[in-house]
């Protein structure tokens, strides 16, 4: 088996999970990761759970700047 088709085991998948979700692993590892979770129900569930958790954190507190602040900022840059 050459290195490219070599499988990741469950332990390696879990170890790389957050890096995978953050898009911080190599293209080869992404492929290996996806190949593994397609076949492994448990790792697939762990991945989906943490992907969802990450989305929930991301969407938990969306604040937007007021138009008033934007106007003030633009005004402060007026020459």
């Amino acid at each position: 088996m050459n290195e490219k088709t070599e499988m990741l085991n469950c332990k390696e998948v879990i170890k790389k999970l957050y890096d995978f979700l953050a898009d911080e692993i190599t293209v080869e590892d992404v492929l290996k990761f996806k190949t593994h979770i397609e076949k492994c129900g448990h790792c697939n569930e762990v991945t989906l759970f943490h992907k969802k958790l990450k989305e929930i954190v991301k969407n938990s507190t969306k604040e937007t700047a007021s138009e008033e602040l934007k106007r003030r900022i633009l005004a402060s840059f007026e020459k």
Binding site: T61, T64, A65, L69, K70, L74
Partner: peptide, 15 residues
């Protein structure tokens, strides 16, 4: 140029 780069980020910065 500064405003062009910075203004779209005001919401993220404020948040």
């Amino acid at each position: 140029k500064f405003l062009e780069l910075a203004m779209p980020l005001v919401d993220s910065l404020y948040s």
